[in-house]
């Protein structure tokens, strides 16, 4: 089987997932305890107003019909109206999305080089002091709550020392980098240790692989074996983890966006939850899920390109 059919089959597998995602986001609204219309309109709404809104939302129709029109609307880009901002949800998403994407990319740019460096140093010194030190750092990194670190950083580096702005997104690329530096660093301090642990484990596992012994028997130098064989074979498992982590990161960005008042999707999400802006919650959940599926797909295709075994 060649790579084209692999990608084709992989795309086909996504269809049921997309249907499932639409079902989940559709039924999310159904989980609201009580009548959403009454919650939105408040206890003093008249029966007529309630009935009018029910009709406007289509709640008087059978559930399958509601679902079908939901899917139809979604496919045409209509994610409903924000109850709070009185604008289409899609407009809100498009307005807030770039900031979160910038933040995620920023975090990856900071984390990945550090991860690879630390993991390689640790793996090549397995059991010796550099490895132990990196292990301690990575364990600590996993236990430190990002929002706590964020609060401390914002006040110390932001307010007290005044090195970085502590809220907003700024204007222009350089200003973005400046504004988002602290959020990106606090997130990286959590992400890099997680990735390091996994890459280190993969590297060490590959170091003990049989083909490494075979390469040594052929007289190939250690440095070459590490670069050409061990590193390549360790990339695959780490790549998969990275896909999971990016999805996690999109979710994790919520907290930093709140701490540093970055007007991104996460801040929008929390605002909507606190303000009971149900259609924004629903739309955002859908957008997040589609983004995750796209990332997973990209990673799978990338993996298939590297690994000759997956496209069999």
């Amino acid at each position: 089987m060649n790579s084209i059919t692999f990608i084709g089959r992989r795309l086909l597998q996504i269809v049921p997932v997309l249907i499932g995602i639409s079902l989940v986001s559709f039924f999310l609204i159904m989980m609201i305890p009580g009548d959403p219309v009454r919650i939105v309109l408040g206890p003093r709404a008249t029966e007529a107003a309630v009935a009018a809104m029910r009709q406007e939302w289509g709640l008087d129709r059978p559930i399958w019909a509601q679902y079908l029109s939901y899917v139809g609307n979604t496919l045409t880009g209509d994610l409903g109206q924000s109850l709070k901002f009185r604008v289409p949800v899609l407009d809100l998403v498009l307005q807030y999305l770039p900031r979160t994407m910038f933040l995620v990319a920023y975090v990856l740019v900071l984390s990945l080089p550090a991860t690879i460096l630390m993991a390689v140093i640790a793996a090549r010194n397995e059991g010796r002091w550099p490895d132990q030190l990196i292990r301690v750092i990575s364990i600590l990194g996993m236990t430190i709550p990002v929002f706590w670190l964020g609060v401390l950083f914002a006040r110390y580096f932001g307010v007290k020392l005044g090195w970085f702005p502590v809220s907003g997104y700024g204007e222009g690329f350089v200003d973005h980098l400046h504004h988002l530096f602290l959020p990106a660093v606090s997130t990286s301090l959590w992400l890099a240790p997680l990735l390091t642990r996994n890459l280190r484990a993969a590297l060490i596992e590959q170091t003990e692989a049989d083909y490494v012994a075979a390469s040594r028997a052929k007289g190939l130098p250690e440095g070459y074996i590490f670069r050409r064989h061990i590193l390549r074979n360790s990339v695959l498992p780490t790549l998969n983890l990275l896909g999971v982590m990016i999805a996690f990161l999109i979710g994790g960005s919520v907290v930093v966006e709140i701490v540093y008042a970055v007007p991104g999707l996460g801040a929008l999400m929390v605002g909507s939850v606190l303000g009971r802006d149900y259609f924004v919650i629903q739309g955002l959940t859908l957008v997040y899920a589609i983004a995750t599926v796209a990332i997973t797909l990209a990673i799978d295709i990338f993996t298939a390109a590297i690994d000759p075994r997956t496209s069999e």
Binding site: V17, G20, I21, L23, G251, G252, A289, T292
Partner: peptide, 9 residues
């Protein structure tokens, strides 16, 4: 389907 949604979201 469940993993398609970011956990925290």
């Amino acid at each position: 389907i469940t993993v398609a949604f970011p956990f925290f979201i």
